[in-house]
């Protein structure tokens, strides 16, 4: 999964900034051994980079089962693996830490990860 293009794709999707206008957070994204940090400021994804190996700082973590994430990223995704909450239902996504930013900006998180699917297709 290559997140490098994600900030530009988020910026090019106008509705996301509105859903996330009050979202400022450091979000750890984990899939197996791979870890990234998403830096979000007022709904803009300003950075999406590999997490530092030592002492990463973040507010909340989205920990994906790698096989579940792979299904989610398929285009089109199979039924039951097509949404972040579908992955939670499957036990393939754990949301940990300060859950409030995730729930308060759920449209933003769902929209951003759907963009990742398009870039993977």
């Amino acid at each position: 999964m290559n997140l490098a293009a994600l900030p530009a794709r988020v910026a090019a999707t106008p509705g996301l900034a509105r859903w996330g206008r009050h979202l400022t957070a450091e979000v750890l994204v984990e899939a197996g051994e791979r870890r990234w940090i998403l830096s979000v400021r007022d709904g803009a994804l300003v950075r999406a980079e590999a997490a530092p190996a030592i002492m990463p700082r973040y507010d909340l973590a989205l920990r994906f089962d790698p096989a579940g994430l792979e299904k989610f990223l398929q285009s089109p995704p199979p039924p039951g693996w097509h949404d972040l909450m579908a992955l939670m239902r499957q036990g393939a996504l754990q949301v940990e830490g300060d859950v409030q930013p995730f729930m308060a900006h759920l449209f933003w998180f769902k929209g951003v990860f759907a963009l990742l699917r398009e870039s993977a297709a």
Binding site: P79, M85, A86, M88, Q100, M103, A104, L106, F107
Partner: peptide, 27 residues
């Protein structure tokens, strides 16, 4: 499969969070 407390919580916007929770249930 999720904590429904967030559907009615002062730190979320109720309408948005309820809609966002069910949005993925649509094909």
């Amino acid at each position: 499969y999720y904590d429904t407390e967030w559907l009615h919580h002062p730190h979320t916007q109720g309408g948005e969070v309820c809609a966002a929770v069910v949005s993925g249930l649509i094909a």
